[in-house]
Structure formats: structure tokens, C-alpha cells
Design a protein around this nucleic acid. Structure first.
Lengths: 227, 227, 227, 227
DNA sequence: AATGAATGAGTGTTCATTCAT
DNA sequence: TATGAATGAACACTCATTCAT
């Protein structure tokens, strides 16, 4: 049975194990990531692992929880300084992409959770979606967006962020073509180019019926509107 | 080394193995799915597997390829009978969700491919996205949508479909709440309620700047607002 | 149950299998050599193998037998044209080394036979040794050699030939040093340099007490010493 | 990855595994010797094996190395007490045969190494030969033997020892005839009869041109010296 | 005579977990 | 608190052999 650490040293060891797990899970995926690899990277003995975690499955769930907490915090912090709703929205996504770039484990771990711990997976997505729903409700109340069903819209937004992040952050090289001989796992992590972020925000703006996002940035759009 | 079957009996056996793999991978995920479970379900001996596939990894890749082919076919077939672009679009998504419901392996296998065979994963998404891109280019040329970057928009659409499908088809029960004691893996597969599909199409319509999609349904929404 | 071939085609097939086995056993050793590799190389189906041989073990024994027969024939043929006993002796060894170079399977198969078919191994060595014994008896009767025990001497001669052959024919490159990064299995097969053959004959000549062999060449060696 | 043991218990376990491997490889040959047979004999679990050795191949190489070390030590220790060169030489061979009798693995493992680990095989023979070469050089410098090429002579000596050892020590029963129904693998290990050792030393003595070895025992040899 | 499909026992190896120290 | 030794179940994969055609 694992237990909460009782000493400062214990706290430190536990944290080292969790950090090591994030790296190892991100690099190898859940099944290839052995407990011994985690303890090696953490610089502790194998037995020590079981002082703080019940099982490999246990640390996995805790890690998903932890990442979920941190990514949501990063998103709200990212949006905090914004002076307008528009800016805040964009800042939230940008923070999400930044977090993804720094913590590729977020993607790898979460996607693999589908088969490892579906429960944890649901919790992760649901929590983020709930944040979106709240924001959408507020915005709708302020008349800033259409009256689109906030739950559906929130899941759609989640999907947009996930795919754009996967494509541009995780896969990195914007010109990466499947079949290329570069090792896809090694493609490192990039960032979302400004252009892509712009277009994505236009997509979202239009979707939610925000004239400010969808049409403001683009005179070209107006021509079209007229046509 | 695996080889193509040379007799009718061999063709039959190979097909049985592939079908069994789809089921087993969907039920257990890649790593929990043992070759012997696949051969058991196919009703052949363990060694027979290796007459037709190089490895467990090999059949996995082939399965991803196969599902990719079939889902794209289902989508274009679903859209074929449509009389308007609008209808076609909606029919394509509906076909995707139907396929998902019948082949939950699509999700489970593809998502796990992130860590099993990233190359296959990229190929899968990229091929679908390419279909979207073509459609978007055409629509833009016909003046039906804004001049949004088709690549960005296509990935965003992919994300919308993926998340809506995951939420409503894969998780099934629309009211499913994480933490419920129902086994999430067993929650079976449902279908996307019409209301959700409607809202999703409005989301997409607005995103792409299609007044027909985005605004048509709005009056209905207004009633709701009033209620 | 295997059977002797009844048609010309069958004779041909059987011979092709035996030749393929020689190559495959030489290249891979007994255990790495699968029956299917043999049938592949012979260009026949797997089942065909069992028409002519009882088992993998069966063809192995037959091959050892076959090689034994051929190497002994090569040795006596090699010696046949010789005009003096000295020349004949040398020619016999030279023929042995030549055969070894052309049929590396002889070494590889025979040495591995230690653990595969000790019975076949004994038979192989014993037959060759018996040839030596006969020759030694004759020579002793003619007063050409000491009265050394012919059995002991014969086994010793066998060892000399085996090791010199292994070192210079099988390992090839005379300067090959273990630990070099060249693949030892690929070092191909060489031939015994004249100098080595000379020295070996002096060794044997002295051992058997043949002044002709042992001392004749010495003056040449002295030049070398002086140079 | 295997690691060196860090505790006394670990050292003990590792040694038990190596000893068990020697027995099992000797009894069954490399390929028939399963890791589980080794661990069974060592009285440890299967997994324990991989704490100390990388693979079955790894322990094989280590065993060859180990046996090589020990046989060379046995030979030089055997020769140490000798008061004359003659005695030392004979004692060295006798020690070699004794070691062979106690460690039949030496032969079985080394001969099989031809196909399992040619690199290890070469190293083994080369190291022993190098010892011979050194001895021959010294003897030549002291004028005790002819000026025969020491490398050729050393390999020849190696062969003599190997074959005599195989014939009399490994096959045991001096009258053993191939085709007898006794199981050849079970023929146990015998010792080289004095008579055989005597004759072998005469063979070698003559070969190297040592009057002390070749002629002492045998008046017949004197005729030759005169010629 | 010839074949290729089928088999299932057997092997090397990994790894989450336990436990004595 | 920490550890490394030990375990054994589990798995991917191979291959000699059989058999229906």
C-alpha cells in the first residue's frame, strides 16, 4: 500500500518519481514504460516506487490528473492578463499549445489513456470541456455569441484545439509528410505558427457567431459577405 | 515472413484473422491483445497467424490501413446521394458517426496508434484531412465559403468530428457522467442525437462562413432562447 | 516415411535437397537451418522434403556421411598421382585442404555434429583415421617411419590437419586477429600458404621419424633464419 | 540489461547460474539447453537469470571465456612443479586432459561455438595457441628444438591435444567402436592411458626435433639420428 | 510426385510486484 | 526511508512435421 510521504525527503522522492513518470510515459507510452525505467530516471531503487504509488496504473492516473490540473491552470493564467474577451480566448489556446509543447506527455499519455484508463480519460476531457461551457454560457449571456448549444460547441472547440495542437505542435515540422523517412516520434515539438492560430481563431469566431473574431481581421471576408 | 495466400482457403483464413484482430484490438487495446487471443477468436492455430502476417505490429498497421480505407469509403458513399452541398456535408459526418458506432475499433485503434505506430496514425489522419481539403477548395472556388486556409480548416473539422464522435458515439449515454459506476469501456456505442448533429453543423457552417448552414437553423434556436 | 526416388525427376529433387542442405547447414549451422530454408533453396515445397528424408536429423546424418565419403575420395585421388610416398602424403593433405575450402560445410557440420549427432561424428573421424592407420602400418612395415603406435599417431595427424585447416582455410586471412571487427563467419575460406604446408610437413615428418620429410626442408629454413 | 551483483547473495546466485550453465550446455549443447533448464538446475527463478546475464548467448560467451581462463590456468599450474622442460611439457598436456575429463563442457561448448559464437571460438583457440608459441620461441632460443615456424607448430600441437583428448578422454572407452549400441553421449569421460600419452609425447618430440623427447624412450630412434 | 496450409509445443525474454534487509 | 534481489506468469514468435489436395 502506498502512503503519503511523511518527511521532506519523502515528498521530494515522490515528486521525482512523478516527474520521471511524465518523461518516461511521454517517451515510450504506457506499456513500453517500465517501472524500472521510471525509477532509474528518478534515481531511486525499484522498491521505492511502491512506497508512494500503488501500481504502475496508479501513477498513470495520478499523472493524468496532475497534467489536467496544470494544463487548465496554464490556460486560465494565459488568459488572465487579456484586456478583451477576444484576446483572452486566443491567449487561452496559445497557452494550451505552449503547455503541449513543453509537456508532450499531455498528448501521448491522454491519447493512450483511451485503452489504459478510460475513466481518467473521460475525466480529463470533461473537466476541460466544463471550463469551455462556463465561458460559452457567459459569453452567450453577454450577447457575444450565438445561442449555440454550449455543450456541443464546447466539445467541438476541444476537438479543434486537440487536432491543431497535434498537427502543429506535436508533429512539429509544418511540412512533415507522412511517409517521409524522418522518425515521427522524434519530430520533436514545435509551435503553432501565427498564421495558423489566426485562421483557427477565425474558424472559431465564425463558428460561435462572433463578428469580432470572424470578420474583423479580414477585409477579404467583407467582400465575400457582399457577394 | 508472411506471404499472400495462394489458395481460396488461405484467403479465407487471412480475412478471418483480420476481422478477429479488429474485434480484439477494439476490446482490449493493442498491448492487452495477445496474438493467441486473435487466433482463438479466428479459430485457427497460433502458428497460422504468422503465415499471413509478419507480426502483431504488422497486423495492427494493416488494420489501421484497412479501417482508414473503409471509413473514407463509408463517408463518400454516405455523401453520394445528397442533392445539395449542405446535405452532402451533413451526410458525410453522419456516415462517419455510423461507421464509428459499428466499428469502435476505429477510435480505439487509432488513438492507441499514437504510441504504437505513429507513422500509421499520421497516415490515417492525413488521408482524411486531404479529403476535407479538396472539398474545401472546391467550395471556396464556388464561393460557398470564406477564404479560410483550407489546411487549417480541414484539421479543425477533423477535430470537431473526432471529439463529437468520441463524446456521443463512443461514450454512448449522453448523460454519462464521469465517476459513474458504469464500466466506461462497456458503455457500448451510441449514436449522435439529431440535436447534436444540428448544432454541430451550425458550428461548422458558421466557421466556414456558410450562411446556409449557420443561420438557417437559428430561428429554431431563438424559440429556445425565449423559452 | 521417406522413400528412395522412383523416377528420374525424383532423383534430381533428392539431390537438389541434399545440395541445398549442405549450403544451408554450412551457412547457418544445424539449428538455425530450418527445413523451410532448405526447401526454399532447393526450390521445392516444404512437404516435398519429407518425401525423401525422414527428418531434419535424417538429412543431417546423410550429409555427414556424404561429405565423409567425398573427402576421403578427394584425399586418395589427390594422392594418387604421386610418385613418392613423401609426395603422396603432402598431396593428401593438400587435397583435404582444397576440399575444405570448397566445402566449408565439412568443418561447420562436423564440428556441430558433436552436439547434434555424436554417432555420426565418431563415424566420420574414425573412418578417416582408419585410412591413416593403414597408411602408417604400411610405412612402418617398409621401415619408412618409426615404430610409433599407429592409432595414436593417426589421431594426432587428424588433429594436425584439422587445426591447420581450421586456422588457414576456414578462417582465411592469415593475419586475422580475433577481436578484429571483420565478421568472422564471413571471412570466407582461404587456402593454406605453401610455407605453412611446408612447415606442417616438417612437423609431421619429424613426428613420424621420416628423415626425408623432416630434414630435407631444413636448409631452406636456415636461410630464412639468416635473413 | 544485466548488471554485476551488488551483494554477497547476488554474487553467489550469479556463480550458481554459471556453474549450472556449464553442466547444462555440456549435457545438451547450446540449442537444446534452455534457459529454464539452467535456472532450474541453479535453483532460481527464470527471471533471475536476466539479472546477471543479458541473454542465453551472453552466458555462453562468458562460459567460453571462463573455461578458457581455467584451462590455461590448469595447464600452467600442472606444469609448474616440473623440474625439466620435458616433464613440464608432458605435465601441461596431462593437466589439459585432466581438465577435460572434469569439464567435458570444454569440448562440447567449444566445438559448438563454431556455429554459435565464432568470435568466442577464435579467441579461445588463439589464446591457447599464443601460450604454445611463447613456449616454442623460448625453446628454440635455447636450442632445444628445431627452427620450425612456431605459429604453425603451435596450431599443430593444439590439434594433437584436441584430437587425442577427444578420442581418449571424451569418448572414454578406448575400445569404443562407432556403431556400438552404447549411447555415445553417455560414454562418460575417461582418461588418457599412459601408453597413449607416451606415444603422443614421442610424436611431438620428433615433430619439434627434440632428441630428449623423441629418442629417449626408443632405441629405434637412434638409427635415425645417425642417418 | 508435389505442395502449401495448418498446427501447437517450445523458447527466450520482459516486467510488475514482493520482501528481507 | 530505501533498496536490490527474486519471482513466475505471460507473450511474441519459430519450426519440424502432418495432411488434404
Amino acid at each position: 500500500m502506498s502512503a503519503a510521504p511523511r518527511t521532506a525527503r519523502g515528498v521530494e522522492t515522490r515528486a521525482r518519481l512523478l516527474a520521471a513518470a511524465e518523461r518516461v510515459f511521454a517517451d515510450h507510452g504506457y506499456h513500453e514504460a517500465s517501472v524500472s525505467r521510471i525509477t532509474d530516471r528518478a534515481g531511486v531503487g525499484q522498491g521505492t516506487f511502491y512506497l508512494y504509488f500503488d501500481s504502475k496504473f496508479g501513477i498513470f492516473n495520478e499523472l493524468v490528473e496532475d497534467l489536467n490540473h496544470r494544463v487548465r491552470q496554464a490556460m486560465s493564467e494565459g488568459a488572465r492578463g487579456a484586456t478583451s474577451r477576444l484576446e483572452a480566448e486566443r491567449a487561452g489556446f496559445a497557452a494550451f499549445f505552449r503547455f503541449t509543447a513543453e509537456h508532450p506527455a499531455l498528448y501521448r499519455v491522454v491519447r493512450e489513456a483511451e485503452s489504459v484508463s478510460p475513466e481518467a480519460l473521460r475525466l480529463h476531457y470533461t473537466r476541460i470541456v466544463e471550463g469551455y461551457i462556463d465561458g460559452l454560457r457567459e459569453a452567450a449571456a453577454d450577447g457575444e455569441i450565438w445561442d449555440i448549444d454550449p455543450t456541443v460547441a464546447a466539445w467541438a472547440l476541444m476537438g479543434v484545439g486537440e487536432m491543431i495542437g497535434m498537427r502543429w505542435v506535436l508533429w512539429g515540422d509544418p511540412d512533415a509528410a507522412p511517409g517521409g523517412d524522418a522518425d515521427p516520434t522524434a519530430s520533436g515539438t514545435g509551435r503553432v505558427p501565427d498564421h495558423v492560430l489566426d485562421e483557427m481563431m477565425r474558424f472559431i469566431g465564425g463558428a460561435l457567431g462572433r463578428p469580432d473574431l470572424a470578420q474583423g481581421p479580414r477585409p477579404a471576408a467583407e467582400e465575400k459577405e457582399e457577394s
